[in-house]
Write a protein that binds this DNA or RNA. Structure first.
Lengths: 210, 210
DNA sequence: GCATTCAGTGAACACGTGTTCGCTCAATTT
DNA sequence: AAATTGAGCGAACACGTGTTCACTGAATGC
Protein backbone atom coordinates (compact mmCIF):
# COMPACT_ATOMS: atom_id res chain seq x y z
CA UNK A 1 0.00 0.00 0.00
CA UNK A 2 2.73 2.41 -1.00
CA UNK A 3 0.10 4.55 -2.66
CA UNK A 4 1.88 4.51 -5.99
CA UNK A 5 -1.47 4.65 -7.66
CA UNK A 6 -2.80 7.61 -5.68
CA UNK A 7 0.47 9.49 -6.16
CA UNK A 8 0.34 9.02 -9.92
CA UNK A 9 -3.27 10.14 -10.00
CA UNK A 10 -2.47 13.29 -8.08
CA UNK A 11 0.42 13.91 -10.44
CA UNK A 12 -1.67 13.88 -13.59
CA UNK A 13 -4.33 15.88 -11.78
CA UNK A 14 -1.75 18.56 -11.16
CA UNK A 15 -0.69 18.22 -14.80
CA UNK A 16 -4.26 18.96 -15.88
CA UNK A 17 -4.46 22.00 -13.62
CA UNK A 18 -1.12 23.24 -14.88
CA UNK A 19 -2.12 22.61 -18.48
CA UNK A 20 -5.30 24.63 -18.03
CA UNK A 21 -3.30 27.50 -16.55
CA UNK A 22 -0.81 27.41 -19.40
CA UNK A 23 -3.63 27.84 -21.88
CA UNK A 24 -4.96 30.97 -20.24
CA UNK A 25 -3.83 34.17 -21.90
CA UNK A 26 -5.15 37.56 -22.90
CA UNK A 27 -6.46 36.27 -26.22
CA UNK A 28 -7.57 32.86 -25.03
CA UNK A 29 -9.75 33.11 -21.95
CA UNK A 30 -11.34 30.61 -19.63
CA UNK A 31 -14.50 30.49 -21.72
CA UNK A 32 -12.68 29.04 -24.70
CA UNK A 33 -10.74 26.50 -22.71
CA UNK A 34 -11.24 23.13 -24.34
CA UNK A 35 -11.18 19.76 -22.64
CA UNK A 36 -9.31 18.18 -25.52
CA UNK A 37 -6.61 20.83 -25.69
CA UNK A 38 -6.09 20.72 -21.94
CA UNK A 39 -5.85 16.94 -22.02
CA UNK A 40 -3.40 17.10 -24.91
CA UNK A 41 -1.17 19.57 -23.08
CA UNK A 42 -1.33 17.43 -19.96
CA UNK A 43 -0.22 14.46 -22.02
CA UNK A 44 -3.27 12.24 -21.53
CA UNK A 45 -6.12 11.07 -23.72
CA UNK A 46 -9.22 13.29 -23.82
CA UNK A 47 -11.32 10.61 -22.21
CA UNK A 48 -8.96 10.26 -19.26
CA UNK A 49 -9.88 13.77 -18.26
CA UNK A 50 -13.06 12.39 -16.74
CA UNK A 51 -11.10 10.29 -14.29
CA UNK A 52 -10.18 13.56 -12.54
CA UNK A 53 -12.94 16.05 -13.19
CA UNK A 54 -16.56 15.63 -14.12
CA UNK A 55 -16.46 18.78 -16.22
CA UNK A 56 -14.31 21.61 -17.45
CA UNK A 57 -16.48 23.54 -15.02
CA UNK A 58 -15.18 21.46 -12.13
CA UNK A 59 -11.60 22.12 -13.23
CA UNK A 60 -12.45 25.81 -13.37
CA UNK A 61 -13.76 25.80 -9.82
CA UNK A 62 -10.60 24.02 -8.71
CA UNK A 63 -8.56 26.78 -10.33
CA UNK A 64 -10.54 29.41 -8.47
CA UNK A 65 -9.86 27.53 -5.24
CA UNK A 66 -6.16 27.72 -6.03
CA UNK A 67 -6.73 31.43 -6.51
CA UNK A 68 -8.19 31.64 -3.03
CA UNK A 69 -5.09 29.99 -1.60
CA UNK A 70 -2.90 32.41 -3.51
CA UNK A 71 -4.82 35.39 -2.13
CA UNK A 72 -4.36 34.16 1.43
CA UNK A 73 -0.67 33.66 0.80
CA UNK A 74 -0.55 37.19 -0.60
CA UNK A 75 -2.12 38.56 2.56
CA UNK A 76 0.37 36.72 4.74
CA UNK A 77 3.35 37.92 2.77
CA UNK A 78 1.96 41.43 2.73
CA UNK A 79 1.69 41.44 6.51
CA UNK A 80 5.25 40.23 6.79
CA UNK A 81 6.45 43.04 4.56
CA UNK A 82 4.49 45.55 6.63
CA UNK A 83 6.03 44.20 9.83
CA UNK A 84 9.44 45.00 8.39
CA UNK A 85 8.53 48.68 8.59
CA UNK A 86 8.33 51.32 5.88
CA UNK A 87 5.25 52.43 4.00
CA UNK A 88 2.29 50.11 4.54
CA UNK A 89 0.68 51.10 1.28
CA UNK A 90 3.86 50.76 -0.75
CA UNK A 91 4.67 47.36 0.73
CA UNK A 92 1.15 46.07 0.11
CA UNK A 93 0.85 47.26 -3.47
CA UNK A 94 4.32 46.07 -4.37
CA UNK A 95 3.63 42.64 -2.96
CA UNK A 96 0.33 42.51 -4.78
CA UNK A 97 1.89 43.36 -8.11
CA UNK A 98 4.61 40.79 -7.54
CA UNK A 99 2.01 38.12 -6.97
CA UNK A 100 0.13 39.16 -10.08
CA UNK A 101 3.29 38.96 -12.13
CA UNK A 102 4.23 35.54 -10.80
CA UNK A 103 0.76 33.98 -11.00
CA UNK A 104 -0.68 35.38 -14.20
CA UNK A 105 -3.02 32.50 -14.90
CA UNK A 106 -4.64 32.58 -11.49
CA UNK A 107 -5.04 36.33 -11.48
CA UNK A 108 -6.52 36.25 -14.95
CA UNK A 109 -9.27 34.12 -13.51
CA UNK A 110 -9.75 36.32 -10.46
CA UNK A 111 -9.40 39.76 -12.07
CA UNK A 112 -10.40 39.45 -15.71
CA UNK A 113 -13.07 36.77 -16.03
CA UNK A 114 -16.18 38.73 -15.15
CA UNK A 115 -18.41 37.44 -17.90
CA UNK A 116 -18.95 34.46 -20.14
CA UNK A 117 -18.79 31.97 -17.27
CA UNK A 118 -21.27 29.88 -15.42
CA UNK A 119 -23.06 31.43 -12.50
CA UNK A 120 -21.32 29.05 -10.13
CA UNK A 121 -17.90 30.07 -11.42
CA UNK A 122 -18.63 33.75 -10.94
CA UNK A 123 -19.96 33.12 -7.45
CA UNK A 124 -16.77 31.27 -6.55
CA UNK A 125 -14.63 34.18 -7.73
CA UNK A 126 -16.83 36.67 -5.91
CA UNK A 127 -16.55 34.63 -2.76
CA UNK A 128 -12.77 34.76 -2.81
CA UNK A 129 -12.68 38.47 -3.55
CA UNK A 130 -15.16 39.18 -0.78
CA UNK A 131 -13.10 37.17 1.65
CA UNK A 132 -10.07 39.22 0.68
CA UNK A 133 -12.01 42.43 1.18
CA UNK A 134 -13.27 41.27 4.57
CA UNK A 135 -9.71 40.65 5.71
CA UNK A 136 -8.80 44.15 4.65
CA UNK A 137 -11.75 45.57 6.57
CA UNK A 138 -10.63 43.76 9.69
CA UNK A 139 -7.15 45.16 9.30
CA UNK A 140 -8.45 48.70 8.97
CA UNK A 141 -10.69 48.27 12.01
CA UNK A 142 -8.25 46.42 14.25
CA UNK A 143 -4.90 47.97 13.34
CA UNK A 144 -5.95 51.39 12.10
CA UNK A 145 -8.89 52.03 14.41
CA UNK A 146 -11.31 52.98 11.68
CA UNK A 147 -15.04 52.81 12.32
CA UNK A 148 -16.40 49.68 10.66
CA UNK A 149 -18.61 51.61 8.25
CA UNK A 150 -15.78 53.77 6.91
CA UNK A 151 -13.45 50.79 6.85
CA UNK A 152 -15.89 48.89 4.65
CA UNK A 153 -16.21 51.73 2.18
CA UNK A 154 -12.47 52.22 2.12
CA UNK A 155 -11.63 48.52 1.77
CA UNK A 156 -14.06 48.05 -1.09
CA UNK A 157 -12.66 51.07 -2.88
CA UNK A 158 -9.11 49.85 -2.37
CA UNK A 159 -9.93 46.40 -3.70
CA UNK A 160 -11.64 47.88 -6.76
CA UNK A 161 -8.68 50.13 -7.54
CA UNK A 162 -5.99 47.55 -6.89
CA UNK A 163 -7.73 44.67 -8.65
CA UNK A 164 -8.47 46.85 -11.64
CA UNK A 165 -4.85 47.97 -11.83
CA UNK A 166 -3.77 44.38 -11.37
CA UNK A 167 -5.90 43.33 -14.31
CA UNK A 168 -4.17 45.95 -16.44
CA UNK A 169 -0.77 44.86 -15.14
CA UNK A 170 -1.37 41.35 -16.44
CA UNK A 171 -1.08 42.56 -20.01
CA UNK A 172 1.58 45.20 -19.45
CA UNK A 173 5.34 45.13 -19.86
CA UNK A 174 7.70 45.71 -16.96
CA UNK A 175 7.92 49.45 -17.39
CA UNK A 176 4.17 49.95 -17.62
CA UNK A 177 3.72 47.69 -14.65
CA UNK A 178 6.07 49.89 -12.67
CA UNK A 179 4.05 52.93 -13.66
CA UNK A 180 0.83 51.21 -12.60
CA UNK A 181 2.36 50.28 -9.26
CA UNK A 182 3.41 53.85 -8.46
CA UNK A 183 0.08 55.19 -9.67
CA UNK A 184 -1.83 52.75 -7.51
CA UNK A 185 0.26 53.64 -4.47
CA UNK A 186 -0.49 57.32 -4.98
CA UNK A 187 -4.19 56.58 -5.40
CA UNK A 188 -4.36 54.53 -2.23
CA UNK A 189 -2.75 57.40 -0.38
CA UNK A 190 -5.49 59.67 -1.65
CA UNK A 191 -8.10 57.20 -0.46
CA UNK A 192 -6.38 56.88 2.92
CA UNK A 193 -6.35 60.65 3.33
CA UNK A 194 -9.98 60.88 2.38
CA UNK A 195 -10.96 58.18 4.83
CA UNK A 196 -8.87 59.84 7.51
CA UNK A 197 -10.68 63.10 6.90
CA UNK A 198 -14.01 61.26 7.18
CA UNK A 199 -12.88 59.97 10.55
CA UNK A 200 -12.06 63.49 11.75
CA UNK A 201 -15.42 64.77 10.58
CA UNK A 202 -17.21 61.96 12.39
CA UNK A 203 -15.31 62.71 15.59
CA UNK A 204 -16.11 66.42 15.40
CA UNK A 205 -19.74 65.66 14.83
CA UNK A 206 -19.70 63.27 17.76
CA UNK A 207 -18.36 66.02 20.03
CA UNK A 208 -20.68 68.78 18.89
CA UNK A 209 -23.90 66.76 18.64
CA UNK A 210 -23.58 63.49 20.54
CA UNK B 1 -32.16 56.08 -56.92
CA UNK B 2 -34.41 56.07 -53.90
CA UNK B 3 -31.78 54.06 -52.01
CA UNK B 4 -34.19 51.26 -51.16
CA UNK B 5 -31.30 48.88 -51.43
CA UNK B 6 -28.95 50.82 -49.14
CA UNK B 7 -31.72 51.31 -46.61
CA UNK B 8 -32.47 47.59 -46.48
CA UNK B 9 -28.79 46.80 -46.10
CA UNK B 10 -28.44 49.20 -43.21
CA UNK B 11 -31.53 47.67 -41.67
CA UNK B 12 -30.18 44.14 -41.59
CA UNK B 13 -26.82 45.50 -40.47
CA UNK B 14 -28.55 46.99 -37.46
CA UNK B 15 -30.36 43.68 -37.03
CA UNK B 16 -27.02 41.90 -36.83
CA UNK B 17 -25.68 44.38 -34.29
CA UNK B 18 -28.83 44.07 -32.24
CA UNK B 19 -28.73 40.28 -32.48
CA UNK B 20 -25.16 40.21 -31.20
CA UNK B 21 -26.13 42.42 -28.28
CA UNK B 22 -29.09 40.21 -27.42
CA UNK B 23 -26.80 37.21 -27.17
CA UNK B 24 -24.50 38.84 -24.66
CA UNK B 25 -25.17 37.84 -21.08
CA UNK B 26 -23.33 36.95 -17.91
CA UNK B 27 -23.05 33.29 -18.90
CA UNK B 28 -22.54 33.81 -22.62
CA UNK B 29 -19.78 36.34 -23.28
CA UNK B 30 -18.37 37.95 -26.37
CA UNK B 31 -15.79 35.18 -26.78
CA UNK B 32 -18.44 32.55 -27.35
CA UNK B 33 -20.50 34.63 -29.73
CA UNK B 34 -21.12 32.56 -32.83
CA UNK B 35 -21.59 33.83 -36.36
CA UNK B 36 -24.32 31.31 -37.05
CA UNK B 37 -26.31 32.08 -33.92
CA UNK B 38 -26.08 35.80 -34.52
CA UNK B 39 -27.20 35.35 -38.14
CA UNK B 40 -30.08 33.14 -37.01
CA UNK B 41 -31.27 35.71 -34.48
CA UNK B 42 -30.98 38.45 -37.08
CA UNK B 43 -33.13 36.39 -39.42
CA UNK B 44 -30.64 35.90 -42.23
CA UNK B 45 -28.62 32.98 -43.58
CA UNK B 46 -25.18 32.44 -42.03
CA UNK B 47 -23.47 33.20 -45.31
CA UNK B 48 -25.21 36.55 -45.65
CA UNK B 49 -23.32 37.70 -42.58
CA UNK B 50 -20.29 38.27 -44.79
CA UNK B 51 -22.17 40.88 -46.84
CA UNK B 52 -21.95 43.13 -43.78
CA UNK B 53 -18.88 42.15 -41.79
CA UNK B 54 -15.71 40.37 -42.77
CA UNK B 55 -15.50 38.73 -39.37
CA UNK B 56 -17.15 38.37 -36.00
CA UNK B 57 -14.16 40.44 -34.95
CA UNK B 58 -15.29 43.29 -37.17
CA UNK B 59 -18.77 43.13 -35.65
CA UNK B 60 -17.15 43.22 -32.22
CA UNK B 61 -15.20 46.35 -33.04
CA UNK B 62 -18.39 47.93 -34.30
CA UNK B 63 -20.04 47.14 -30.99
CA UNK B 64 -17.17 48.78 -29.12
CA UNK B 65 -17.62 51.85 -31.31
CA UNK B 66 -21.26 51.94 -30.28
CA UNK B 67 -19.98 51.77 -26.71
CA UNK B 68 -17.85 54.83 -27.33
CA UNK B 69 -20.88 56.73 -28.55
CA UNK B 70 -22.81 55.65 -25.47
CA UNK B 71 -20.01 56.87 -23.19
CA UNK B 72 -20.04 60.29 -24.85
CA UNK B 73 -23.79 60.47 -24.50
CA UNK B 74 -23.38 59.52 -20.86
CA UNK B 75 -20.94 62.38 -20.33
CA UNK B 76 -23.31 64.85 -21.96
CA UNK B 77 -26.27 63.73 -19.90
CA UNK B 78 -24.16 63.77 -16.77
CA UNK B 79 -23.14 67.39 -17.41
CA UNK B 80 -26.76 68.33 -17.92
CA UNK B 81 -27.70 66.75 -14.60
CA UNK B 82 -24.85 68.57 -12.89
CA UNK B 83 -25.98 71.86 -14.39
CA UNK B 84 -29.35 71.33 -12.73
CA UNK B 85 -27.59 71.70 -9.39
CA UNK B 86 -27.35 69.36 -6.42
CA UNK B 87 -24.53 66.95 -5.66
CA UNK B 88 -22.15 66.56 -8.59
CA UNK B 89 -21.02 63.14 -7.45
CA UNK B 90 -24.53 61.87 -6.83
CA UNK B 91 -25.79 63.12 -10.18
CA UNK B 92 -22.86 61.56 -12.04
CA UNK B 93 -22.99 58.17 -10.37
CA UNK B 94 -26.76 57.97 -10.69
CA UNK B 95 -26.60 58.80 -14.38
CA UNK B 96 -23.84 56.26 -14.87
CA UNK B 97 -25.80 53.49 -13.21
CA UNK B 98 -28.87 54.37 -15.25
CA UNK B 99 -26.87 54.04 -18.44
CA UNK B 100 -25.46 50.72 -17.33
CA UNK B 101 -28.93 49.44 -16.56
CA UNK B 102 -30.32 50.57 -19.90
CA UNK B 103 -27.42 49.41 -22.05
CA UNK B 104 -26.38 46.15 -20.48
CA UNK B 105 -24.92 44.61 -23.64
CA UNK B 106 -22.69 47.56 -24.41
CA UNK B 107 -21.45 47.87 -20.86
CA UNK B 108 -20.76 44.18 -20.69
CA UNK B 109 -18.33 44.71 -23.53
CA UNK B 110 -16.76 47.79 -21.97
CA UNK B 111 -16.65 46.70 -18.34
CA UNK B 112 -16.48 42.92 -18.25
CA UNK B 113 -14.61 41.70 -21.31
CA UNK B 114 -11.02 42.08 -20.17
CA UNK B 115 -9.74 38.76 -21.43
CA UNK B 116 -10.35 36.14 -24.08
CA UNK B 117 -10.51 38.65 -26.91
CA UNK B 118 -8.24 39.66 -29.71
CA UNK B 119 -5.60 42.25 -29.03
CA UNK B 120 -7.34 44.67 -31.35
CA UNK B 121 -10.60 44.33 -29.48
CA UNK B 122 -8.96 45.03 -26.14
CA UNK B 123 -7.15 48.02 -27.56
CA UNK B 124 -10.41 49.42 -28.86
CA UNK B 125 -12.04 49.09 -25.45
CA UNK B 126 -9.03 50.62 -23.73
CA UNK B 127 -9.12 53.52 -26.16
CA UNK B 128 -12.71 54.33 -25.27
CA UNK B 129 -12.10 54.05 -21.55
CA UNK B 130 -9.03 56.25 -21.79
CA UNK B 131 -10.97 58.85 -23.69
CA UNK B 132 -13.58 58.81 -20.97
CA UNK B 133 -10.91 59.21 -18.32
CA UNK B 134 -9.30 62.08 -20.21
CA UNK B 135 -12.62 63.90 -20.31
CA UNK B 136 -12.89 63.47 -16.56
CA UNK B 137 -9.37 64.80 -16.07
CA UNK B 138 -10.24 67.88 -18.10
CA UNK B 139 -13.31 68.45 -15.99
CA UNK B 140 -11.34 68.23 -12.77
CA UNK B 141 -8.70 70.61 -14.08
CA UNK B 142 -11.01 73.11 -15.75
CA UNK B 143 -14.01 73.17 -13.45
CA UNK B 144 -12.50 72.13 -10.16
CA UNK B 145 -9.08 73.74 -10.48
CA UNK B 146 -7.11 70.64 -9.62
CA UNK B 147 -3.48 70.41 -10.62
CA UNK B 148 -3.20 68.16 -13.66
CA UNK B 149 -1.15 65.56 -11.85
CA UNK B 150 -3.59 65.14 -9.00
CA UNK B 151 -6.52 65.27 -11.40
CA UNK B 152 -5.07 62.38 -13.39
CA UNK B 153 -4.60 60.24 -10.31
CA UNK B 154 -8.06 61.09 -9.09
CA UNK B 155 -9.77 60.54 -12.45
CA UNK B 156 -8.13 57.16 -12.95
CA UNK B 157 -9.12 56.07 -9.46
CA UNK B 158 -12.69 57.25 -10.03
CA UNK B 159 -12.96 55.39 -13.31
CA UNK B 160 -11.59 52.22 -11.75
CA UNK B 161 -14.05 52.39 -8.85
CA UNK B 162 -17.08 53.35 -10.92
CA UNK B 163 -16.42 50.92 -13.77
CA UNK B 164 -15.82 48.10 -11.34
CA UNK B 165 -19.05 48.88 -9.51
CA UNK B 166 -20.83 49.16 -12.85
CA UNK B 167 -19.59 45.71 -13.83
CA UNK B 168 -21.08 44.35 -10.61
CA UNK B 169 -24.30 46.25 -11.20
CA UNK B 170 -24.79 44.46 -14.52
CA UNK B 171 -25.51 41.22 -12.73
CA UNK B 172 -27.34 42.65 -9.73
CA UNK B 173 -31.01 43.10 -8.98
CA UNK B 174 -32.55 46.51 -8.41
CA UNK B 175 -31.99 46.55 -4.68
CA UNK B 176 -28.35 45.52 -4.90
CA UNK B 177 -27.85 48.07 -7.65
CA UNK B 178 -29.21 50.75 -5.36
CA UNK B 179 -26.77 49.65 -2.66
CA UNK B 180 -23.89 49.76 -5.13
CA UNK B 181 -24.89 53.23 -6.24
CA UNK B 182 -24.91 54.64 -2.71
CA UNK B 183 -21.68 52.87 -1.88
CA UNK B 184 -19.98 54.26 -4.95
CA UNK B 185 -21.16 57.76 -4.16
CA UNK B 186 -19.71 57.50 -0.66
CA UNK B 187 -16.44 56.17 -2.04
CA UNK B 188 -16.11 58.97 -4.56
CA UNK B 189 -16.64 61.44 -1.75
CA UNK B 190 -13.75 59.85 0.10
CA UNK B 191 -11.59 60.13 -2.99
CA UNK B 192 -12.63 63.75 -3.48
CA UNK B 193 -11.73 64.58 0.09
CA UNK B 194 -8.39 62.84 -0.25
CA UNK B 195 -7.59 64.71 -3.44
CA UNK B 196 -8.67 67.95 -1.84
CA UNK B 197 -6.35 67.31 1.06
CA UNK B 198 -3.53 66.63 -1.41
CA UNK B 199 -4.24 70.00 -2.95
CA UNK B 200 -4.00 71.72 0.43
CA UNK B 201 -0.75 69.94 1.18
CA UNK B 202 0.70 71.00 -2.15
CA UNK B 203 -0.31 74.59 -1.53
CA UNK B 204 1.23 74.62 1.93
CA UNK B 205 4.42 73.16 0.59
CA UNK B 206 4.42 75.75 -2.14
CA UNK B 207 4.21 78.52 0.45
CA UNK B 208 6.78 77.15 2.87
CA UNK B 209 9.41 75.99 0.38
CA UNK B 210 8.88 77.56 -3.02
C1' DG C 1 -35.86 48.48 -71.92
C1' DC C 2 -31.44 46.13 -71.07
C1' DA C 3 -27.33 45.26 -68.48
C1' DT C 4 -25.28 45.37 -64.17
C1' DT C 5 -24.78 45.33 -59.35
C1' DC C 6 -25.19 43.00 -55.07
C1' DA C 7 -27.86 41.36 -50.60
C1' DG C 8 -29.38 37.07 -49.59
C1' DT C 9 -29.35 31.87 -50.33
C1' DG C 10 -28.57 26.63 -49.69
C1' DA C 11 -25.49 22.93 -50.35
C1' DA C 12 -21.27 21.30 -49.14
C1' DC C 13 -16.66 21.16 -46.95
C1' DA C 14 -13.28 20.19 -43.30
C1' DC C 15 -12.67 20.59 -38.56
C1' DG C 16 -12.80 20.71 -33.49
C1' DT C 17 -15.80 19.78 -29.91
C1' DG C 18 -17.87 16.90 -25.62
C1' DT C 19 -19.21 12.42 -24.39
C1' DT C 20 -20.13 7.06 -24.57
C1' DC C 21 -18.36 2.63 -24.43
C1' DG C 22 -15.71 -1.46 -23.86
C1' DC C 23 -11.09 -2.64 -23.30
C1' DT C 24 -6.19 -3.08 -21.09
C1' DC C 25 -3.18 -3.97 -17.49
C1' DA C 26 -0.63 -2.56 -13.41
C1' DA C 27 -1.49 -1.46 -8.48
C1' DT C 28 -4.06 -2.92 -4.76
C1' DT C 29 -6.86 -5.93 -1.77
C1' DT C 30 -8.24 -10.30 -0.18
C1' DA D 1 -1.81 -16.55 -5.65
C1' DA D 2 -6.20 -15.00 -7.13
C1' DA D 3 -9.63 -11.36 -7.48
C1' DT D 4 -10.68 -6.64 -7.77
C1' DT D 5 -10.03 -1.94 -8.62
C1' DG D 6 -9.34 2.02 -11.46
C1' DA D 7 -6.35 5.28 -14.42
C1' DG D 8 -5.65 5.53 -19.08
C1' DC D 9 -6.91 4.47 -23.88
C1' DG D 10 -8.82 4.44 -28.95
C1' DA D 11 -12.81 4.15 -31.74
C1' DA D 12 -16.90 6.07 -32.63
C1' DC D 13 -20.93 9.19 -32.20
C1' DA D 14 -23.62 13.41 -33.03
C1' DC D 15 -23.18 18.18 -33.31
C1' DG D 16 -22.00 23.08 -34.05
C1' DT D 17 -18.65 25.73 -36.08
C1' DG D 18 -16.47 29.08 -39.96
C1' DT D 19 -15.98 29.48 -44.79
C1' DT D 20 -16.35 28.42 -50.06
C1' DC D 21 -19.02 28.57 -54.03
C1' DA D 22 -22.29 29.12 -57.68
C1' DC D 23 -26.80 30.79 -57.93
C1' DT D 24 -31.13 33.91 -57.67
C1' DG D 25 -33.73 37.99 -58.34
C1' DA D 26 -34.90 42.60 -57.25
C1' DA D 27 -32.96 47.34 -57.14
C1' DT D 28 -30.07 50.28 -59.72
C1' DG D 29 -27.52 52.54 -63.72
C1' DC D 30 -27.41 53.49 -68.45
Amino acid sequence: MAGVRAAQKEKTRRALIQAAMNQLSAEHGYASLSLREVAREAGIAPTSFYRHFQNMEELGLTLVDEGGLTLRQLLRQSRQQIAKGGSIIRASVTTFMEFVTNNTAIFRLLLQEKSGNSREFRLAVTREVEHFTAELVDYLVDEQQFAREVAELQADAIVRIVFSAGADALDADTKERQRLTEQTIAQLRIVARGAESMRQAAKTKELTAP
